[in-house]
Structures are given as structure tokens and as C-alpha cells.
Amino acid sequence: MDETAGIYAQESPYLERFVQVGVASGRVLRVTFPNEAEDDALPDHAVLDRIMAYLEGVEEDFSDVQVALTVPTDQRGVLEAVRNIPYGDQVNVETVARMTSGIDHTEEADLDLVRTALDANPAPILVPDHRVRDGPSAAPPDVEQKLRSLEGL
């Protein structure tokens, strides 16, 4: 991955908004969907190009993209499990809990932890929280619905 730190953005006709990626030390720090790109955002980055291709219908899992999951450790485990949900598949919060080491899918507090992690996801699309049908997404609702539609969910 490109090691250059910065903010990169391109407009997505499919989402009808920009996709903005923050990168540092070869890792994606954040993916956001603003109506306008930040003034200093640059248009060219390999990960951003891959996201744009995905939004045009190219099946992509982004498993090789390094994401800096700057969330508490217990939430990090949840988000790492979500990264393993295949393109075009959907699961529920309970299944994510089952997929996550150290979390009990029968405990409401652990299910709440899964929901909290999904809501705090710093990199929607790369960590595909839109594939969790009954959990929150960190992406705006209209973006989440378009991502689900794109994958036939």
C-alpha cells in the first residue's frame, strides 16, 4: 500500500457523495462519506481506487488492506471478525458474537459490545458492517443501504 500519509477523496456517482480515506504509516485510519471533500484531499490513492471500483460493481474483499482499528481491544476483535464476512453474505449480531473470540453470543452485554463496535467502526466498506443485518453501521444510513443493494443483500 502507498506509504504516503494524507487524506484522499473521490466523488462516487453511485453513493452521490464523496468517499474520503485517511491514511498514515501504510494503514487506513478512517473511511468517511462527506458531501464535500476536505480542501486538502488528494484524488489518487490505490485503496481509494479499489473502493471506487467496488462501488462500480467489482467484487472485492479488501482483506489485504491494513486498517488501523483505533478502538478498544474488545471492539477490535469484533471488527476483525466482521472483516471475515464474505462479499454478498449477511449475518446477524449474534453470529458476529459467535465469530469473535471471548464473546458469548447468549449474553446481552456481549451483544451490546458487538453493536457498539459496529457503530464505532472507523472504516466502513473495508470493515463491512453493512453485512450485519440487525446491527448499526458507521456509514450514513443512505450509504449503508446502497452498499447492501450493491451486494444484493
Score class of each variant (00 low, 15 high):
residue 1 M to Y: 06
residue 1 M to P: 12
residue 2 D to Y: 07
residue 4 T to Q: 15
residue 4 T to D: 14
residue 6 G to W: 10
residue 7 I to P: 00
residue 8 Y to H: 12
residue 10 Q to D: 07
residue 11 E to W: 13
residue 12 S to M: 05
residue 13 P to C: 05
residue 13 P to T: 09
residue 13 P to A: 10
residue 14 Y to I: 07
residue 15 L to C: 04
residue 18 F to K: 08
residue 18 F to W: 07
residue 22 G to Q: 15
residue 24 A to F: 05
residue 24 A to V: 04
residue 25 S to W: 14
residue 25 S to C: 14
residue 29 L to E: 14
residue 29 L to S: 11
residue 29 L to Y: 06
residue 32 T to N: 11
residue 35 N to R: 12
residue 36 E to M: 04
residue 38 E to N: 01
residue 39 D to E: 14
residue 39 D to Y: 01
residue 40 D to T: 05
residue 40 D to I: 04
residue 43 P to K: 06
residue 44 D to P: 08
residue 44 D to Y: 08
residue 44 D to C: 07
residue 46 A to R: 11
residue 46 A to V: 12
residue 49 D to H: 08
residue 49 D to C: 01
residue 49 D to A: 14
residue 49 D to I: 05
residue 51 I to G: 02
residue 51 I to C: 08
residue 52 M to H: 13
residue 53 A to V: 10
residue 54 Y to M: 01
residue 55 L to F: 03
residue 57 G to Q: 07
residue 60 E to I: 02
residue 60 E to W: 03
residue 61 D to T: 14
residue 64 D to R: 12
residue 68 A to W: 08
residue 70 T to D: 11
residue 71 V to G: 12
residue 72 P to H: 07
residue 72 P to T: 06
residue 73 T to Y: 01
residue 73 T to R: 14
residue 76 R to G: 00
residue 78 V to A: 10
residue 78 V to C: 00
residue 78 V to L: 00
residue 79 L to K: 00
residue 81 A to P: 04
residue 82 V to C: 03
residue 83 R to F: 00
residue 84 N to Y: 02
residue 84 N to R: 12
residue 87 Y to D: 05
residue 89 D to M: 06
residue 90 Q to M: 09
residue 90 Q to I: 07
residue 94 E to P: 04
residue 95 T to S: 07
residue 96 V to A: 02
residue 100 T to P: 04
residue 102 G to T: 14
residue 103 I to Y: 06
residue 104 D to L: 06
residue 105 H to Y: 11
residue 106 T to D: 15
residue 107 E to M: 10
residue 109 A to V: 14
residue 109 A to D: 15
residue 110 D to V: 09
residue 110 D to G: 00
residue 111 L to W: 15
residue 111 L to F: 13
residue 113 L to Q: 13
residue 114 V to P: 12
residue 116 T to C: 10
residue 117 A to F: 08
residue 118 L to W: 13
residue 118 L to V: 13
residue 121 N to I: 10
residue 123 A to T: 13
residue 124 P to C: 02
residue 125 I to G: 14
residue 125 I to V: 15
residue 126 L to V: 09
residue 127 V to C: 04
residue 129 D to K: 00
residue 129 D to T: 10
